[in-house]
Computed example of a mutant assay.
Amino acid sequence: MTTTTLNPRVDVRRAAERFATRISWLDSKHSFSFGGHYDPDNTHHGLLLVNNDDVVHPGTGFETHPHRDMEIVTWVLQGSLVHQDSEGHNGVIYPGLAQRMSAGTGILHSEKNDSWRLTGGDTHDKPVHFVQMWVVPDEPGITPGYEQLEIENELLAGGLVPVASGMDKHAGEAAIRIKNRYAALYAARLQPGQSVELPEAPFLHLFVPRGTVTLEGAGTLETGDAVRFTATGGQKVTATEPAEILVWEMHATIAA
């Protein structure tokens, strides 16, 4: 990781510009190079390497697979997702629940649509929609770990809510801790007319997983749109319809 002299820039990326993976059980949009989709000029922004916008069909999901040396944050927008891993962690992730997995020295995990579960005798068969984001850790080879915490009440109170952070300023405040002291993720649920002000940082990434907002100085952002900020911040984001936004604040980038 490194910091350097930067020129201010606001780079709007439209939903339709993203890489896409569509198979029988998965509809996935990738903001950065991922899997078989590779563009050497689109590998990361700041410390963020993956911003995958996934819809998984009922009764399906990602079978057990490995990860290593990555901080993985999953944010569910609709439905619920079952997590199981080789360290013995099990959890159901649903809207309003912050979840982080530290892959560290190596971990195996699966993520599946929870719709097969029975509640009151009814079978639920809805897709699960979630965003999965990866940032690099401060150092390789850490012990794998898992954490989740309910933050629904904080989201209902409004404003940018710290979801996951390794930054000192969020000690005792962020919902979950990640192993990178230069990065923090925020979420906000906005009703029409409500606004939040973005933090200022060398690198910001704003993603609109649902709804429509206006970004001060840049105009309308719709579902799936993203903005990469360099050496700037402080702009207002205002909802024009019910919306949810995810914002990464990053004070370093990956060394070239």
Rank of each mutant, 00 (worst) to 15 (best):
L97M: 15
A201I: 13
L97T: 14
K29F: 14
A201T: 12
Y182T: 08
H67L: 12
G79H: 01
W25A: 06
G46S: 07
M167C: 06
R181N: 15
E249Y: 04
N153T: 15
V227F: 03
L155D: 00
G193L: 06
K29H: 14
H67W: 05
E222V: 09
L190H: 11
A183K: 01
I93R: 03
S24V: 06
V208C: 10
W248L: 08
E152C: 02
G217E: 01
G79V: 02
T214V: 14
L246C: 01
V161E: 05
R68G: 02
V128Q: 01
L155E: 01
D85G: 02
G233D: 01
D11W: 06
G158F: 13
V76R: 10
T60K: 15
L156Y: 13
D39T: 06
A174F: 09
G36V: 13
I151E: 00
P127I: 08
E17F: 03
V196F: 10
D114N: 15
K29N: 14
F32A: 10
P40T: 09
T123F: 07
P66T: 11
H65E: 03
G104Y: 01
V12E: 09
F203V: 05
K169D: 10
I142E: 03
V208Y: 08
A231N: 15
S102E: 00
E197Y: 00
V56M: 13
Q148N: 14
N153S: 15
G36W: 01
H124I: 15
F32K: 01
M101I: 13
A184D: 03
T230K: 10
Y38K: 08
H67Y: 09
I176H: 03
W248A: 09
S86M: 01
R13H: 14
A256P: 13
T212G: 02
R18P: 08
G79P: 02
T119F: 02
D41S: 07
I93K: 01
R189T: 13
V50H: 09
G219M: 11
Q194E: 15
Y94M: 03
L97H: 10
H205K: 09
F19R: 00
P242F: 05
V128W: 01
R210N: 14
H37R: 06
R22D: 12
